[in-house]
Design a protein around this nucleic acid. Sequence first.
DNA 1: CGGGCAAAGCTAATTAGATTAGCTTTATGG
DNA 2: CCATAAAGCTAATCTAATTAGCTTTGCCCG
Lengths: 189, 189
Amino acid sequence: MPRAGLSRAEVIRAGAALADEAGYANLAMAPLAERLGVRTPSLYKHVEGIADLQQEIAALAMTELADRVRDALQGRSGRDALDAFARAFCSYIADHPGRYTATLGRPTHGPEEDPLVKAGTRLLESTGAVLRDYDLPPEDTTHALRMLRSAFHGFATLSGADGFQWPEQTATALTWMIDFLDRGLRARS
Amino acid sequence: MPRAGLSRAEVIRAGAALADEAGYANLAMAPLAERLGVRTPSLYKHVEGIADLQQEIAALAMTELADRVRDALQGRSGRDALDAFARAFCSYIADHPGRYTATLGRPTHGPEEDPLVKAGTRLLESTGAVLRDYDLPPEDTTHALRMLRSAFHGFATLSGADGFQWPEQTATALTWMIDFLDRGLRARS
DNA sequence: CGGGCAAAGCTAATTAGATTAGCTTTATGG
DNA sequence: CCATAAAGCTAATCTAATTAGCTTTGCCCG
């Protein structure tokens, strides 16, 4: 019998894909094994269990998200940067709802070398870069950082929950929110 | 052997309390039964299973949240109302993280008589009441509605995730966000 | 080329949790 | 009193995760 030739990275990738397609709640060892053409216990040669798998999917998601956002910001500034940030952030969550769900409720602080923490920090730095163009008073930046994160996180997760019903409305609502945030930030420069 | 004398409502209340104390992920039939002084299968006399229990906890949470917000809004208007709304909303989630988690990712639309849907509608109406004082152009209200919901939902869930580390900072950040939103909304009246 | 060994798979068994079946007991209304 | 429905219980089943222990493959090195 020919060997499947899996690796830890492939198992995690397939798990992430499964979470996106079937929903994070339906991420389980048995369907993942089937998708990989392998019996369930064989997965334990690559991951330590479902908790490990979930942790790694979260790290993958945060890394991909931070990358997408960083790329989107290239060469942009001011309102343009805010717009690009928002769209990159929300589109990632729309494209990968299962992956993103894996990141929720996981500590963003902890050992410096944890890939999830590292990616979270990178994402925070991108958010900071967007704000830099607005020249906020220094005591405002940390609050503004938190607000942007809250607004986009909230928007994206609520859209995922029930907003796919009106994709049209959702796009308009995001544009409106970006505009609202941009004006408010400029008013504080 | 004396009877425990449970009821459906009591089981749901105890489940909600357990979710708050132990975390929604640790909500399970066995510990719930133990807390109620009963063997696990006895719970099935009151709820149909864990999915039913989760659904009911979500409905309870949304109902309590809508009530708290409605009460907080009594006799307030303008910025005062926005402030009260935000604090009521976020404090509910801080007080009942497990309950609130139960509501996430559940359809807000569906049969009119579903208590969860009904409570969700009530909460939306309160949000609408806050906005009414700002006299927005009608085409803006639906977007503003969505933005407020996104911002507070995002803020509260992210605070729950890792923000309990600096409760001080969190309070200040919320005040800042309320101020930001208030100014932005007034600018559109 | 052939031996040997670590990694990758497999089957079978175990554990944990939810759920179902079917029996027993309590409370209570007639 | 006593009939009966509801509330509990024990025992059994089912599903999903995990562990144990065996087998096979691929590949490095003599």
